[in-house]
């Protein structure tokens, strides 16, 4: 048996955790309707809340490819739910790099896992890509349509091509912080119960 190839069981694990991660993202996404600034704070919420399923997922990873496939699935789901294809390269790129980092630690080293989770969290920024890339025409549409300039200003002040760098860094930082929180939660609940 070739042990380095992914088995059906691995694919099912990927599917389950992708679904869970998407539910977390969706729950946070609903909050974003309230105010544009909350949309910007996805970079804080999703890494931290999502870290619990992710860290549990990391304990199940043993082979290369699981994180990469997960990122492909996320890209597909983002496309299907109308977030567009613009973010897909970022999502998949982040997934593959995170996968390589975790692989270099043999999927066991905690340090590498933390780093890898930080990189993986960069996919969240793909949510903002439609706003940034089509910024000018998007804004024009909104203002022409009679939106209050206040709302537009808030949205574009929080998210534009300048702040995207900050948002990316925040994603990484909170991804790393989230990894510690997630690890603690996994330890507290799952290792005690003997599931991991």
């Amino acid at each position: 048996m070739d042990n380095n190839k992914l088995q059906a069981k691995d694919f099912i694990t990927i599917g389950i955790f992708t679904a869970l991660l998407f539910v977390v993202e969706f729950a946070c996404g609903i909050l974003g309707f309230i105010h544009p600034y909350i949309v910007a704070s996805y970079v804080i919420m999703i890494p931290i809340v999502g870290s619990v399923p992710m860290m549990l997922f990391y304990t199940k990873i043993e082979k290369f490819g699981m994180l990469s496939i997960m990122s492909v699935l996320l890209a597909i789901i983002m496309f299907v739910t109308g977030m567009g294809y613009l973010g897909a390269p970022l999502i998949i790129g982040a997934g593959v790099i995170a996968d390589l980092i975790a692989k270099s630690g043999g999927y066991k080293s905690f340090k590498k896992t933390v780093l890898s989770h930080g990189v993986f969290c960069l996919w969240i920024c793909a949510n903002y890509f439609p706003v940034i890339v089509t910024a000018d025409s998007y804004r024009k549409n909104l203002v022409d349509g009679g939106y209050s300039t206040e709302y537009c200003d808030n949205l574009f002040r929080a998210i534009n091509s300048k702040t995207i760098a900050v948002l990316l860094i925040l994603c990484f930082v909170f991804g790393v912080i989230g990894a510690f929180i997630g690890k603690a939660v996994v330890k507290k609940h799952f290792e005690k119960a003997g599931i991991v």
Binding site: A8, G15, I16, A19, L73
Partner: peptide, 14 residues
């Protein structure tokens, strides 16, 4: 196959 199976699980899982 990998993508198919994982996607099918995602769909079934919601």
């Amino acid at each position: 196959d990998g993508i198919t199976i994982s996607l099918a699980v995602v769909m079934r899982f919601f």
